[in-house]
């Protein structure tokens, strides 16, 4: 079943066509990579999918409905969560609060119940705390729940950001360069984790990555972007041998 489908998606910044004629089709449960040289428009594509930018042309269908024109928070509430290239944690808050905030829109109690602390307030807060700690346990961060996010080591900050995105309970998870700044061993662990969360949470994952070992290692299918356009798509094997891709990355062969 198709979960995400974009057709002829594009955006212009002034005169610059950052992304054009982007056609993605991702089925439920797939693990797809989006690669391309620097400035190819990968992050812009994510920003289009999540409502940060409004496309100047084309459509985005998610789970059967168009999500063009929705604000980022509405897109998240529909079931797309993301991480950022340059980590964006709530850096002065505790690890636990970071996860609790992602859970925010599942909370039902109203303003009055909040202020007088009656009705659904205590039961829901207890449930929320419980669930948030469960999420942290999965990522081996429960021991650090009271620590301030910005004091975590870099690798744990990346993990926390993924944990936070999962706490929003998405159907589709977008990861923007999850392995950036990691050493080979950490990257390997991350690969294992990505495989595992997909299975455990029944997720569909689309990830941007520069680290080819990770992309080739976990992705079942890959889209290659260059100058805002898809230049190739296929399995890791097919991509590896595609002359267009090699040209985009290494430049044209000298005659």
């Amino acid at each position: 079943m198709t979960l995400l489908k974009t057709s002829k998606l594009g955006i212009m910044f002034g005169g610059l066509r950052a992304v054009s004629n982007l056609n993605l089709e991702i089925s439920s449960g797939e693990l797809v990579g989006l690669i391309g040289p620097n400035g190819a428009g990968k992050t812009t594509a994510f920003n289009l999918l999540t409502g940060v930018y409004q496309p100047t042309e084309g459509t985005i269908e998610f789970d059967g409905d168009s999500i063009v024109g929705l604000k980022p928070y509405q897109v998240t509430q529909r079931g797309i969560a993301r991480t950022f290239q340059n980590i964006r944690l709530f850096s002065d808050l505790s690890v636990l609060d970071n996860v609790k905030i992602a859970y925010h829109f599942h909370v039902k109690y109203g303003l009055l119940e909040t202020v007088v602390r009656m009705g659904r307030y205590y039961p829901e807060e207890e449930e929320l705390e419980h669930k948030a700690i469960q999420f942290l346990k999965i990522f081996n961060l429960d021991g650090k729940k009271d620590e301030i996010a910005k004091n975590l080591p870099y690798g744990e900050q990346r993990r926390l950001e993924i944990a936070r995105a999962l706490a929003a309970q998405p159907k589709l998870l977008l990861l923007d360069e999850p392995a950036a700044g990691m050493n080979p061993q950490e990257t390997h662990q991350l690969m294992e984790m990505i495989r595992w969360i997909r299975k455990e949470f029944d997720l569909t994952i689309l990830l941007i990555e520069h680290d080819m070992s990770l992309v080739m290692g976990v992705c079942e299918r890959i889209y290659v972007l260059d100058y805002g356009m898809v230049i190739a798509t296929g399995t890791p094997q097919e991509i590896k041998n595609n002359p267009k891709v090699i040209e985009a990355y290494l430049g044209e062969e000298v005659q």
Binding site: P72, R88, F90, A102, H104, Y121
Partner: peptide, 22 residues
């Protein structure tokens, strides 16, 4: 409360807050 945490998340990082459904 969850409402208050939503407010604080706006202070911490508005873009991330929005991406978390706030």
């Amino acid at each position: 409360s969850s409402h208050g945490r939503a407010c604080i998340s706006v202070r911490e990082n508005e873009i991330a807050a929005e991406a978390m459904g706030v």
